[in-house]
């Protein structure tokens, strides 16, 4: 009896270790995403029909996100050339208003806002300065710049941009992968 219990305990321990490893990997692995240039969006936002893996990933990385019909969240980890976004570097985000009722773009260090003395964390449809043609450019850089400037932090590390579209229009909802979203172009490093 005792050897059986020992073997059972061993089996359970090994199973728990394997399951835990798989669990951590599953939470890191992104479920199927919509890709639009450097921007990614979740396919199963809203999540009523999401599988258990998508739901677990969303609970970890996108908690309390709204249904896709209500809001689309685009996340960028790279610039338009596919290079990883880095804090301490300079980027230009330029484009025109997406097909949505209201949008905003914010920069993050991991999942936290980047501290800066001006408490400037984002630009939105209502705060961005535009050119005569309605287009706009937001500049991310560690040092303060004129116009639409957002601090990209002074220390090195990964940078994440989030474009939130509340009340997405029919065109954006129907085909977010083909929507005209802002381009992210790298400037010079500091």
């Amino acid at each position: 009896m005792l050897p059986y219990l020992v073997k059972l305990s061993l089996s359970f321990t090994v199973a728990a270790l394997v399951a835990g490893r798989g669990f951590r990997r599953a939470l890191r692995r992104r479920p199927r995403r919509i890709q639009n240039g450097p921007w990614q969006a979740s396919v199963s936002s809203g999540r009523r029909r999401a599988g258990i893996y998508s739901r677990a990933f969303a609970a970890r990385h996108e908690p309390l996100g709204l249904q896709r019909s209500e809001a689309l969240y685009f996340v960028a980890y790279t610039d338009s050339d596919g290079n990883k976004l880095r804090r301490g570097c300079t980027y230009s985000l330029s484009g025109q208003d997406p097909d949505t009722r209201w949008w905003s773009v914010a920069a993050y260090n991991n999942n936290t806002l980047i501290p800066n003395p001006r408490h400037r964390y984002s630009y939105s449809m209502t705060t961005v300065l535009r050119g005569a043609d309605g287009r706009w450019t937001i500049r991310f850089s560690p040092r303060e710049a004129g116009g639409n400037w957002l601090p990209s932090a002074t220390e090195e590390g990964e940078l994440k941009l989030v474009l939130r579209c509340y009340g997405p229009g029919a065109e954006l909802l129907a085909n977010p992968a083909a929507a005209r979203l802002p381009q992210i172009v790298a400037g010079t490093s500091r």
């Binding site: 089996s11 359970f12 090994v14 199973a15 728990a16 394997v18 399951a19 835990g20 798989g22 669990f23 599953a26």
Partner: peptide
Amino acid sequence: TLALAVVLH
């Protein structure tokens, strides 16, 4: 062990 791992996962 494999079955347990799948169930736990």
